[in-house]
Simulated assay, not measured.
Amino acid sequence: MITITAATGQYGRLVVDELFQRGVPASGIVATVRDPAKAADLVGAGNYVTWADLLVRICQTSRAASRSEAACRS
């Protein structure tokens, strides 16, 4: 499993795309994002998406891009 932090950012997105081009299956990529809403396409592609604010704590969204930051903190 490969974890990409800032997967919806400029460079993180490039890394995810490159991994797909190199044949890494979506199930082998963990996309860590600050805003799950921006990762809807990654979830749709079958990636495991986690929400993380490295200044707070890491919270798994378990493939649910609609899960909010507030829900993770509760």
Rank of each mutant, 00 (worst) to 15 (best):
Met1Thr: 00
Met1Gly: 00
Ile2Gln: 02
Thr3Leu: 06
Ile4Asp: 01
Thr5Phe: 07
Ala6Pro: 01
Ala6Trp: 01
Ala6Ile: 00
Ala7Met: 02
Gly9Leu: 02
Gly9Gln: 00
Gly9Trp: 00
Gly9Thr: 04
Gln10Gly: 02
Gln10Pro: 00
Tyr11Trp: 05
Tyr11Ser: 06
Tyr11Cys: 02
Gly12Pro: 08
Gly12Tyr: 02
Gly12Ile: 06
Arg13His: 10
Leu14Asp: 11
Leu14Ile: 07
Val15Ile: 14
Val16Arg: 04
Val16Ala: 13
Val16Lys: 05
Glu18Val: 05
Leu19Met: 12
Phe20Asn: 08
Gln21Val: 11
Gly23Asn: 11
Gly23Ile: 09
Gly23Lys: 09
Gly23Arg: 08
Val24Met: 14
Val24Ser: 06
Val24Pro: 05
Ala26Val: 07
Ala26Trp: 03
Ala26Pro: 05
Ser27Ala: 14
Gly28Glu: 15
Gly28His: 15
Gly28Cys: 13
Gly28Gln: 15
Gly28Ile: 03
Ile29His: 07
Val30Thr: 15
Val30Gln: 13
Val30Gly: 09
Ala31Thr: 09
Ala31Ile: 12
Ala31Pro: 14
Ala31Trp: 01
Thr32Met: 15
Thr32Cys: 14
Thr32Tyr: 09
Val33Gln: 04
Asp35Ser: 11
Asp35Val: 10
Pro36Trp: 02
Pro36Glu: 04
Ala37Pro: 05
Ala37Cys: 07
Lys38Arg: 01
Lys38Ala: 05
Lys38Thr: 02
Lys38Leu: 04
Ala39Asn: 12
Ala40Ser: 12
Ala40Tyr: 05
Asp41Ser: 15
Leu42Asp: 02
Val43Leu: 09
Val43Trp: 00
Gly44Asn: 14
Gly44Leu: 11
Gly44Gln: 13
Gly44His: 08
Ala45Val: 07
Ala45Met: 14
Ala45Ser: 14
Gly46Asn: 12
Asn47Thr: 13
Tyr48Asn: 10
Val49Ile: 12
Val49His: 00
Thr50Asp: 15
Ala52Lys: 02
Asp53His: 06
Leu55Pro: 10
Val56Ser: 13
Arg57His: 14
Ile58Ala: 13
Ile58Pro: 09
Ile58Thr: 14
Cys59Ala: 14
Gln60Leu: 12
Ser62Met: 10
Arg63Val: 10
Arg63Pro: 08
Arg63Cys: 11
Ala64Trp: 03
Ala64Ser: 13
Ala64Gln: 14
Ser66His: 14
Ser66Met: 09
Ser66Lys: 10
Arg67Asp: 08
Arg67Asn: 06
Glu69Ser: 07
Glu69Gln: 08
Ala71Met: 04
Ala71Gln: 10
Cys72Asp: 06
Cys72Tyr: 06
Arg73Val: 01
Arg73Cys: 00
Ser74Gly: 11
Ser74Trp: 04
Ser74Cys: 02
